[in-house]
Design a binder for these strands. Structure first.
Lengths: 215, 215
DNA sequence: AGACTCTTGTGAACTAATGCACAAGGTGTC
DNA sequence: GACACCTTGTGCATTAGTTCACAAGAGTCT
């Protein structure tokens, strides 16, 4: 009953966690991993692991578990991890610099090939191996490096303009850290990460527990 | 039927977006905002806005909309935004430095009061106004500044130890950027943001569309 | 006052996601 | 080969979240 059909969004969001968890198993060595173990490694529960993996296919062995290497291969296949997706970072402020230099990106197939910034002092420089260009060069950069993903780490005010430029250059995947809503054609996928919002959610629960709890 | 009862998690996650959207309205000026407008400002749909706000209370006027100032006040109240929650940043690598210097945190009531790092060259220095201490000082820092939230931006290997130290110091809210699972007592709330995972989700959809689409 | 317009608040239908519980199927032992 | 023991895969119940659609007010205009 292995269905290569639609994979639920919630499952897609967890597949990278499983892949990360499987890093605990050395390559080349044959090892089996149970849904229970993998659940621990990924920080979810075993039922979810099994249900999620069943969406990819029937890769486990009843009574035994999953072959770690084979499972990693299959998840990688589903996620398209074999591909390398070049990334351009737009906005080289504090956050942009950190992202451009983030080893976790390159390591997982998302090399930062270039950056843009509107500050004339930064344009033309190379920061941690990443060349900084003027925003007007975006189209060129995208074409030259075959950029697949744009990361927006500009101030909120410049974010929409940057998004428009990315879309105009043909980029269809955007990850934005700007605290603002971006509009783009439907075929463009935007993931928005607002760090302050995350803290506010933590703050809400703190607030709640302090009210309910002590003074 | 205004219920100050339980607010659904999904709603809580959107309240900061509404608050952010309301920034478009100048303070002091009386203005009304419709669920439709607010939906645009927050990047969701109008039905969701109304349902979400109805969980806070009955603050709108039929036929008119919501009073922007009053609504902002009520959402702030629900989120506990009036409180200031001091933050400690653990791990002053690229990302940690960017976070410590992130104006969006302080602006929204999350001042970064101190940082820790295991690098002896950094300990004792002040980076962008934030003093860097040794990890062993965490307990002290938390007590002295009444720290409410710990941000973990250490390498994955040091993350669990850092989390343990934060918990031991009495911190019950943690935001982690380390690509690993953290374990902590149930009463501790952990929000994990793995940037590479986010990109992998984008990568999945790119992969999918390239398979389905052209060569 | 009555008619008309507007927008909220909310039941109700619908969709997505989670968690349970257990049969199915595999391994190992005697 | 029979039996005991594991762990997967999955049907089903449950819970959470979304969307629709419309009655219930509130304002405006004549």
């Amino acid at each position: 009953m292995a269905s290569p059909g639609r994979i639920p969004e919630a499952t897609v969001a967890r597949l990278p966690l499983y892949l990360r968890g499987l890093d605990a198993f050395p390559v080349g060595v044959t090892a089996t991993v149970s849904s229970d173990e993998l659940a621990d490694l990924a920080g979810v529960n075993a039922a979810k692991v099994r249900k999620d993996l069943s969406h990819l296919g029937t890769y486990g062995t009843r009574g035994v578990g999953y072959d770690a290497t084979f499972l990693r291969f299959q998840i990688s296949l589903a996620l398209g991890v074999a591909n390398v997706w070049p990334v351009v970072v737009c906005g080289m402020g504090n956050l942009g610099r950190a992202l451009a230099n983030h080893t976790g990106f390159t390591d997982r197939g998302f090399p930062v090939v270039a950056a843009t910034d509107s500050d004339p002092d930064k344009i033309g420089t190379i920061v941690d191996g990443v060349p900084v260009h003027a925003p007007s060069q975006l189209g060129d950069i995208v074409r030259r490096f075959d950029v697949a993903i744009g990361v927006i780490s500009t101030p909120a005010g410049a974010a929409q303009g940057t998004a428009d430029a990315l879309v105009a250059a043909g980029v269809t995947s955007i990850m934005s850290f700007a605290p603002t809503v971006l509009s783009a054609p439907d075929e463009v996928e935007i993931r928005s990460v607002d760090l302050a919002t995350e803290l506010q959610i933590l703050g809400f629960h703190l607030h709640r527990s302090r009210i309910a709890g002590d003074s």
